[in-house]
Amino acid sequence: MSDKKPERRDFLFTASYAVGAVGVAAVVWPLVDQMNPDASVKALASTEVDVSSLKPGNTITVLWRGKPVFIRRRTQEEIAEARSVKMEDLIHPEKDEDRAKNPEWLVMLGVCTHLGCVPLNDKGDYDGWFCPCHGSHYDTSGRIRKGPAPWNMEVPKYEFVNANTIKIG
């Protein structure tokens, strides 16, 4: 083949394969994409939570997009502890000021970034959360301090609609 000059027939072969490949890809894509989140799942994009009953030092867990979200009203000690940590000591350096714009309120996905378990509240070596599955410790800002998890617990997009209501998503 390599010594032969390309013929008209070689061009036809190549063109046929190319059209065939595009055709197969066009058919396969809908079959693959149907597995992605559908319109009804995406429609559940935001949820509003009334947090008026929450006292300092308490946490509530709400479900958002099928995942638990921790909303914690932190005590002054917890805030002080979270803000005094040096960046060098963190596995995934993030300032507490960036994670909790309103220092009293910490809102984050209650999902361990290792393999997705729900960490336990008020547990672990850093007074924050502890994941029972594979032993990840999080601090009072939900930052990973020890264990196999690679990142801090994720802070979702949220806002205070009014003084008592948080809208997540």
Partner: peptide, 17 residues
């Protein structure tokens, strides 16, 4: 992972597939 789940967590779409 989102594609496998068909959502943002393990849920009904995951179960049916």
């Amino acid at each position: 992972v989102t594609w496998l789940w068909g959502g943002y967590s393990v849920d009904n779409p995951t179960l049916t597939r």
